[in-house]
Nucleic acid binder design. Structure first.
Lengths: 253, 253
DNA sequence: GGTCACGGTCTTGTATACAAGATGGTATTC
DNA sequence: GAATACCATCTTGTATACAAGACCGTGACC
């Protein structure tokens, strides 16, 4: 088994430099209102990781994050532990934190579990006495060509929602929760799939075909289409990620 | 959908009384060595919940736990957040913590996901070019009758290990991790299944049959047996749990 | 007698101070 | 010149002090 890791551990990001970092900035009053500071820091840091403002392998300390967000270490630590538990970052005992390097073996396994869960969902949906309402999905993915979105960011969100909706249709909230966790862990590479217009089109086509198969209760067809769809996406995303990481490194170097 | 909840929110456990509580006691030097305090508190509290020293619905505060364990609130909070994230306890904003009430709807869903994952594992194992080595399982579950364990506690552990081993045989560590999380969440009721000698025997029989089916690559048979096995266990456990909870309440009242 | 307002108390949320271990550079020794 | 021991510094781990919101009982008022 090849353990294929990507990351940079050779240097920290803007450590102690005078330049303003591109990532996390002080929390304003408005942002933290209604939610606690730990939750806000958590959300912000997660965004920073997903948006590649914090690159895989980047090292940082609790004090750094605390200073930049303008809160104390206590809520920062709470946020960091949550992110660690979800597999986004890691702590080295008394030696700082770092964003987990991209590990394609890990992503393979996660995509594999995704397939297991989604195919099980298809199975259950097709075996229900009556197919559950999937109106919202139909409105989005079976819409005429000219109503399709072209911007990658919202399409990435719709894509996640499509697959989560399939799971949700089983009526099992725990399955949804587990699936959602997986979705969040692969998001960092998955969203890159929607930076190419051709891939967006292809996603629309494939989702439409899958949806039609489910609605007409052709389980075998739906299963095959969905499995292929996920595997194509996985391969595509892997290719793009390697390219993007190379670019990001070149830019920050 | 009937939301069937069991718990007691009417009174806290030994709150402020002079009597020594049955649950969590001060952490000794030896226990905390090599691990951090938060981890120790986490483990101890989880045990207390599993052993019914802390009953579903029981309320408690961070200060209480801190006093009893002899550590400060900081590591206690870290432990509590971990337990909360794993679904064992819950915090009510600025109003204390409580052990999550038993929710059989939730357990139904978790058992359902269990079935999905285990059947997928069977599928993958049976489709492998060569069946992976399951020597340890064979040694335990295909052993002669007189070598069977009779004490429920170790059998409960072996049972968990049996099902986790099936998942592990797929070679997907993420699936194992997810499965393990589910195992921990249903453990509180599942281990009660092994308090009856008849159920221990039945488990041995069923595991043996499942194992033989897998080894002879009879996928359909293995699938059916495993599915039935899990569903029987689920029903049995539900029955016992309600009985035990009744007893525990009567005793503490 | 019932209802609403108010304040004390309890609980979590957050900030800060201190402790202990890990790292890396430097000086010393062979 | 290389290796090793040591110390300064940095980082997390833990304890404690303080802040803010929620709950509950009490008292006044209608």
């Amino acid at each position: 088994m090849v353990h294929f890791e990507c990351g940079r551990s050779d240097h920290a990001i803007l450590k102690g430099s005078g330049a303003m970092p591109t990532w996390i900035t002080p929390i304003s009053m408005k942002q933290s209102q209604k939610r606690n500071l730990a939750g806000t820091v958590y959300t912000r840091l997660k965004e920073d990781i997903f948006e590649f403002r914090l690159l895989p392998g980047d090292r940082f300390t609790e004090t750094e994050v605390a200073l930049r967000t303008g809160v104390s270490r206590t809520p920062v630590r709470e946020a960091l532990f949550r992110l660690a538990r979800e597999g986004h970052i890691e702590v080295v005992s008394r030696n700082g934190w770092h964003v987990k390097p991209l590990d394609f073996t890990l992503f393979d396994h996660l995509y594999d579990v995704r397939i297991v869960l989604e195919l099980a969902a298809i199975d259950r949906i097709c075996k229900m006495v009556e197919t559950p309402a999937l109106d919202e999905l139909e409105a989005i993915w079976l819409a005429p060509r000219d109503q399709r979105l072209r911007d990658g960011t919202p399409v990435a969100g719709l894509d996640e929602a499509f697959h989560e909706a399939l799971i949700a249709a089983t009526g099992n909230p725990e399955m949804v929760r587990i699936f959602h966790d997986i979705t969040e862990r692969i998001r960092i590479i998955r969203r890159l799939d929607f930076t190419q217009p051709a891939r967006i089109d292809q996603t629309y086509e494939e989702h439409a075909r899958i949806l039609k198969s489910i609605l007409s209760r052709k389980q075998d067809q739906a299963t095959l289409l969905l499995k292929t769809h996920i595997e194509i996406s996985k391969a595509e995303v892997k290719k793009i990620t390697l390219h993007r990481l190379y670019e990001a490194r070149a830019q920050s170097a």
